[in-house]
Simulated scan of single mutants.
Amino acid sequence: MLAFVAAVLFVIAFVINATETSTETVFSPTSLMLAGLAFLAVHSAGVGSGWSSRGGGRGRRR
């Protein structure tokens, strides 16, 4: 899920850069790219990867 957020941020940054839209400092293509890279780093670290806290396969096996 975090990789999808990063991809959306990269697309927004690309569109802003390609159209040369004047934006505020917070939404510059560079800041959006850095936010996207941060989301990719968190995704690569395994956060939000779908692990469940119920133990998954630790139940009784037949």
Rank of each mutant, 00 (worst) to 15 (best):
F27Q: 09
I16A: 02
A41S: 15
V15W: 06
L32R: 08
F39D: 04
F27M: 11
V15T: 10
L32V: 06
T30C: 04
W51N: 07
F4A: 15
L9V: 00
A45D: 14
E20Q: 14
A13Q: 08
R54P: 00
G48R: 09
A6W: 01
L32P: 00
V8W: 01
F10N: 02
R60V: 13
R62S: 13
R60Q: 13
S31E: 11
F39V: 13
G36N: 04
V42Q: 02
I16L: 08
S53R: 11
G57N: 14
R61D: 12
A13V: 01
A45P: 09
S44Q: 12
F39L: 13
V5W: 01
S44P: 00
V15C: 01
T19N: 05
F14W: 04
L34V: 13
G36Q: 01
A45V: 05
A35V: 12
A3T: 07
A35P: 02
F14K: 03
A13N: 02
F10K: 06
L37W: 14
T21M: 07
G57K: 04
V15Q: 05
V26I: 10
P29F: 06
A35Y: 05
L2Y: 01
V5P: 00
H43V: 03
R54D: 05
W51R: 15
M33C: 07
S49N: 15
G50F: 13
F39H: 13
G50C: 07
S31V: 09
R61L: 15
H43E: 08
E24W: 05
V26Y: 01
L37C: 12
F27D: 12
I12V: 15
A7D: 06
S22W: 08
L37E: 12
F27T: 05
L40S: 10
S44M: 14
V47C: 09
I16Y: 01
S28K: 03
